[in-house]
Design a protein around this nucleic acid. Structure first.
Length: 636
RNA sequence: GCCCAUGUAGCUCAGUUGGCAGAGCACGUCCUUGGUAAGGACGAGGUCAGCAGUUCGAUCCUGCUCAUGGGCUCCA
């Protein structure tokens, strides 16, 4: 019989007869690791355990607890879920069921809507299928034959998918009477699923297109064992405690009122303070980098929005009003006024680039279903700037903005991902101009070796963009910083500058934000710090606590001296026990608690307790003031 | 906007298969003056999201509206 040589990751190798499967190899080799193998990687290609080796190969086995192993488990779990749903609900059609970060889902088309009660039933049916330990087998067959089979099963979505595949042969996976179109690999049998949970129910459009039918999506997750599943669910619970909506309430930062309107944020004193700190920070950082402050109105005449293309391309997101027969649009962006600043007189190339900065409040009509705490609102303030520069300056200006973003993200210790978005369907301007703008963005990213992913067709209507995405407590991504390269609006508004030859030339405009929107950034920031802001950001930096009523006089002096030094201080002189006051200050996540008892009054000092629980040695008030000021300066 | 769920005191949540609405925390008064995460007693607090309908009677059943949560689509 023909022999083949198999090499293992540890460098060893063995010979087997041709057609030996991975199963047989595992059995034959003396493996005392006690590990369960669920799939393999043959020459870097993932395969099932039943895969027969036909030639010499490098072979690696996949364990259930590895990243790839988990992916396979989850994929098989989604098949088991689909099988369970088909068994329970006659006439249900299956569509697609991929794995996602931390889990999987499957989309179903069924006349009646699933309810949360159905989920329990589906879970127990899945458990039955798992307990039966049904073998999962792969079959390759001609595409036409697969189409026939799925047609007979009235799985019209599968037929639709198959009709778009150009391959002559396709693979399907079969467990019992259930068959699904799938590349694989899969677990050898359903019993290998040791821990799973269905997590939620949602609607989802077929192929993600809102023109298509809405399907029913069931989300789930699976792990290699019960312990890791429970750890994961626990981590989710913990993350929910960092939710900015929860902390916004308990730390008394902001509220959103049904009476006032959805998506409209009302800042309470501490939230307003936090925002003000960020705004001061922003102004300084922009002035340091050669930006100038400008300011535009909230209403601009409709004609101007028509000229810019906003009316045509952005109308459904805008609010309109009418004053004395004149139509106005409420600004959803700040660029128009900034262009009018530029256009207010003739510009020379000598004064470019012009960098106009504004904490610009905008209103956008976001669809009701997308509103989300501070992260998606209808009125928000952007740290917006428009840079008007010569085409020659464009690259260095883009680089300048990227550096700015990196500097700021480092200060907050944010990790982020970058994306480059290209021309969308609904847009203005010539292809050549879009091509130019897109390639320069790409060029700057590549030149500076900044990793990014490309999002086709997701640019702004006037130009391509680079976005920075930050994650919330539940790892959902939110766009914050963005840089948008625009050759189109300068053209539409006939912006010019006089070049060194004395002739008129067209400037380029960069639209950019660094934090993005104050609301969204604050939302992400709250979750990032879990509400325990560093001293420089904390709306309340310290709280003065008395031990008994006797100490109030000196405590009041301390308090006054501290607020006099512009520290952000609260006081709690209530007739309560110290332990209670400390507990409440701790729950409010205040960085320092200053305790004033008889000892402190006698010595004219304060005793500070840090949020961490650490007790500092007693110090004079001035020492404490310097300590906080220094810490704030270092952004600690 | 679409799918599913939810909406009870300031907050977190019980509850009534249709018959006067409950707890803890917070709040107020009093007692207590206590040294690093919850001292005690008493008290006040509700159009059970809103509007309509069914019913002798609706917080509960039905419909619509608004809002919130998880997704989809869309965006900072």
């Amino acid at each position: 019989m023909e022999k083949i040589t198999v090499k293992f990751p540890d460098g060893s190798s063995s010979t087997f007869s041709k057609n030996t499967t991975l199963f047989q190899i595992v059995k034959s080799i003396d493996d005392d690791s006690g590990k369960d193998y669920i799939a393999g990687k043959v020459n870097e290609k993932l395969v099932d355990m039943s895969f027969p080796l036909l030639e010499d190969a490098n072979l690696e086995f996949i364990t259930p607890d590895s990243e790839m192993g988990l992916d396979i488990i989850r994929h098989s779990a989604s098949h088991v879920m689909a099988q369970a749903v088909k068994k329970l609900y006659k006439g249900v059609k299956i569509t697609i069921g991929p794995t996602i970060d931390n889990g999987f889902y499957y989309d179903f088309d069924y006349e009646e809507n699933f309810s949360p009660q159905d989920i329990a039933g589906i879970e127990s049916k899945m458990q039955e299928i798992i307990d039966q330990n049904i073998p999962i087998t792969r079959r390759e067959l001609p595409r036409e034959e697969a189409i026939e089979i799925f047609k007979n099963q009235v799985e019209t979505y599968k037929v639709e998918l198959l009709e778009e595949i150009s391959d002559e042969f396709v693979s399907v996976y079969i467990q019992d009477d259930f068959m699904d179109l799938c590349r694989g690999p899969h677990l050898p049998s359903t019993g290998k699923i040791k821990a799973f949970r269905l997590t939620s129910l949602a609607g989802a459009y077929w192929r993600g297109d809102e023109k298509n039918k809405m399907l029913q999506r069931i989300y789930g997750t699976a792990f290699s064992d019960t312990k890791t599943l429970e750890d994961y669910l626990q981590r989710l619970e913990d993350a929910k405690r960092r939710d900015h909506r929860k902390l916004g309430k308990s730390l008394d930062l902001f509220s959103i009122h049904e009476d006032a309107g959805a998506g409209l944020v009302i800042y309470h004193p501490k939230g307003a303070m936090l925002r003000s700190i960020l705004e001061d920070f922003e102004k300084k950082e922009h002035l340091k980098r050669g930006y100038q402050l400008v300011r535009g109105p909230h209403l601009l005449k409709l004609d101007l929005w028509e000229k810019s293309g906003h009316f045509e391309n952005y109308r459904e997101n805008m609010y309109f009003t009418e004053i004395e027969g004149q139509k106005y649009g409420i600004k959803p962006m700040n660029c128009l006024a900034h262009m009018l600043v530029y256009k207010s007189r003739i510009r020379s190339y000598r004064e470019l680039p012009q960098r106009y900065f504004e904490l610009g409040t905008v209103h956008r009509h976001e669809k009701s279903g997308v509103l989300h705490g501070l992260l998606r609102v209808r009125e928000f303030t952007q740290d917006d700037a428009h840079i008007l520069c010569t085409p020659d300056q464009l690259e260095q200006e883009i680089k300048g903005v990227i550096d700015f973003i990196e500097d700021v993200m480092k200060i907050f210790k944010f990790e982020y991902e970058m994306e480059l978005s290209t021309r969308p369907e609904k847009s203005i301007g010539d292809d050549s101009v879009w091509e130019k703008a897109t390639s320069i963005l790409r060029q700057v990213m590549d030149k500076n070796r900044i990793p990014y992913i490309i999002k086709e067709g997701e640019g702004a209507f006037y130009g391509p963009k680079i976005d920075v995405k930050l994650k919330d407590a539940l790892d959902r991504k939110w766009q914050c910083a963005t840089i948008q390269c625009d050759f189109v609006l300068p053209e539409r508004f006939d912006l010019t500058f006089i070049n060194s030859n004395g002739t008129k030339e067209r400037p380029v405009m960069l639209h950019r934000v660094i934090l993005g929107a104050m609301e969204r950034f604050i939302g992400v920031l709250i979750e990032h710090y879990g509400g325990a802001f560093p001293t420089w950001l904390a709306p309340v930096q310290a709280i003065v606590l008395t031990v008994t009523d006797r100490n109030m006089g000196f405590a009041e002096e301390v308090y006054n001296q501290l607020i006099g030094s512009l520290l952000r201080i609260e006081k709690d002189f209530r007739n309560e026990k110290l332990g209670l006051k400390i507990r409440e200050a701790q729950l409010q996540k205040i960085p320092y608690m200053l305790i004033i008892g008889d000892r402190e009054v006698n010595d004219g000092v304060i005793s500070a307790r840090v949020r961490s629980g650490e007790k500092l040695k007693s110090m004079k008030i001035n020492e404490f003031i310097s300590l906080v000021q220094e810490e704030s300066q270092n952004r600690g």
